[in-house]
Design a protein around this nucleic acid. Structure first.
Lengths: 218, 218, 218, 218
DNA sequence: TATGAATGAGTGTTCATTCAT
DNA sequence: CATGAATGAACACTCATTCAT
């Protein structure tokens, strides 16, 4: 009935069960942001106000939970990219807006989780990645067409740098790092602007590159 | 016989004990880089080829080990900064060189460790931080004097961004992230160049700011 | 017998969980008696027939377990004192009965545990101590009124001596010390009888004195 | 102090070695008194001002050290008994004096150590026990002959009670228990005086009984 | 279905004892 | 002979995951 059709894991989910699932995902994101990726699952369950076993009813294990949380985050970020492209007149300004909004989504505390044992072959993941890839590519391509974005960077470069620059420092309150995040992103964006002020080593990293564990490219 | 007067923890350290200490510190740095800051200490001991208790003879606990490893790394990085300033003609090129060399030192996998329960009042730490601060400030000031470095950034900005951009993604082979690190640093450096292409939010972060847990500045 | 409502730690405790808790407390008391206060908690769990983590679900740490075991023991001993006073005609005989019954409760292996890191400010402990204090005082006062108990002793004296004389010798089978316990208590009781046969050094120790870590009195 | 010829462990012991041995035994006794029988051997070595390995050169293991410390203590106590008998006119006063002096020797913190894995067949132990037995028996017999000591107690009773009443409470500073020790011993001695005020359960425990691990007697 | 409870495997840390200088 | 160093075997405690109500 409601538009949960976007993540139709289980077809017929009881109303309270569906609500529990939502709460767990939200609690997990918050917990990851606050205490890092090793936060006890019991803590997440506690924050969500459910028993620990309920968490396991919805998510097979920690990896699965991370997967779902990450998907939800990617969904939001893709929306940000799409909105930025649609609403901003200046293409490079759209890129700036997207980047800063993604930072506010705490993308840094979630995307690193991608790397652990993340199942990149999961169809859900593939679908979401493609969507996000497309959205970001669109923003970048628009800026590039306008001559505002340097030529030697690709979407993968942006995502990795964005992720890294917004990662919480372990043990440091999020407010600690937050003070710097937007400054550094702004500097990085300045570096992305055309004309390029230096030559980059290596080759542009596309989104697909992120999925490949091993790469000999240089 | 000039002893290693630089870190005179214990006066008379037996030759083999000293060798073990070195091996543990080395193994720890490698292990932190490979598996993150939560790597089991037993794993570190195993890599160092010593028993676990030997590790505890040299380092009171995980925090202490991190402290020592970090100090060793800061030492190396300070040297890099000093050497870059002394040997490079172009002041901004000195900054570039320092940043890329620091990345090769895996600074990203060590300095974040600063944030956890790091004892910032430790005299050794204070001394090393001051030295590193001075070295980086000298590089930056030189570049600034030459009109190559934007005005609205300070040493703390550089250190945090450098740290973040070089952090290993947990679980990802180091080679994975390494592919991007130097590209991103180069972009960031481009963003640092004068003239500034945008206005930065917040205020420049000095080295001292990094030591303060709570800051209301924005 | 005290009703179980006296220790309503958790409101709704599942039947099996409650049974486990009981078994752990019992196993702990036995283990403390058999192997002293440093017996591995795993051993206690093993005796109770539960996993080690189950023990930690019920008791935060060793201190907590000791606290609970001690409380249970104090409860039983207080009952003994109350019963002795109520049922024995001869007041000094009531004292003798209480002392010997307390010995059978293995009080010696538990009350010493009071001294370590025992949280004397715990409301449960305070309440129980006050109850035990009142019960013993009543017995002693009754005997004193009858002119059977020497004047220069207080409840603290009795408790400490009772505790010491009934402590198990580490490593000695309990039966080893048991052979002597009741003999020695009987002798001690004889020494407590009025008229006093000698003058005691120091001053009577009240129950409150036992709670004070430091005392200059002599 | 008895001449050192009594403990001719090693025939030709270098002067400094002999001094070290003494210091270790002394440190061990103090450490046992202060921190209980589980005090780390390194702590004892530290107090003695020697390396830990030196301790192992003199004593095979913890058990051996305990054995030697106990022997030294028994030696002192035997002397006290002999001196009391020789110097006091009133036989029961001799008993009182011996008991209080033995308490000052912290016998309680050492004799319990007898029970653990104590090698009772060690000739040294047998010899010392016989000597101590004889000394105490002499004191008691003297008092009994004078009609001052009740008939139904033996030397083993006295030693066990004396040990128990002078044991330090774990974790409680020694001064804590010290306040009570002499009071309780005095009461116990009063209970020992003839005429007996009650009938004792069981049978008198001789010194030999203490050596038997298993006893069905009652 | 949701839940509290149970559990075993894992980690940090200590300590008795052995080794090498 | 004396010592600092090394070590493996504990033990306390945690947590992801499974079980039973």
């Amino acid at each position: 009935m409601s538009d949960t059709a976007e993540l139709p894991r289980q077809r017929h989910l009881r109303a309270d069960a569906s609500r529990n699932r939502e709460r767990i995902v939200d609690a997990a994101r918050t917990a990851f942001v606050d205490h890092g990726p090793d936060v006890p699952l019991d803590e997440i369950a506690r924050r969500a106000g459910v028993g620990n076993a309920t968490l396991y009813r919805h998510f097979a294990d920690r990896k699965d939970l991370i997967q779902q949380v990450t998907l939800a985050s990617m969904d939001r970020i893709a929306e940000e990219a799409e909105a930025a492209l649609a609403e901003e007149e200046d293409p490079f300004q759209a890129l700036r807006r997207f980047v800063h909004r993604a930072a506010d989504e705490r993308i840094g505390s979630l995307c690193p989780l991608l790397s652990e044992g993340f199942d990149k072959s999961d169809p859900e993941v593939v679908r979401m990645r493609d969507r996000l890839d497309a959205a970001i590519l669109a923003v970048m391509e628009s800026a590039r067409q306008a001559g505002k974005l340097r030529e030697d960077v690709a979407a993968g470069d942006l995502m990795v740098a964005l992720t890294q620059l917004t990662r919480p420092l372990p043990g440091m309150m999020c407010d600690g790092i937050d003070r710097y995040v937007h400054r550094h992103l702004q500097i990085f964006l300045d570096g992305l602007q055309a004309p390029a002020r230096s030559e980059l080593p290596g080759s542009p990293a596309t989104f697909e590159d992120l999925a490949q564990p091993q790469d000999g490219a240089m």
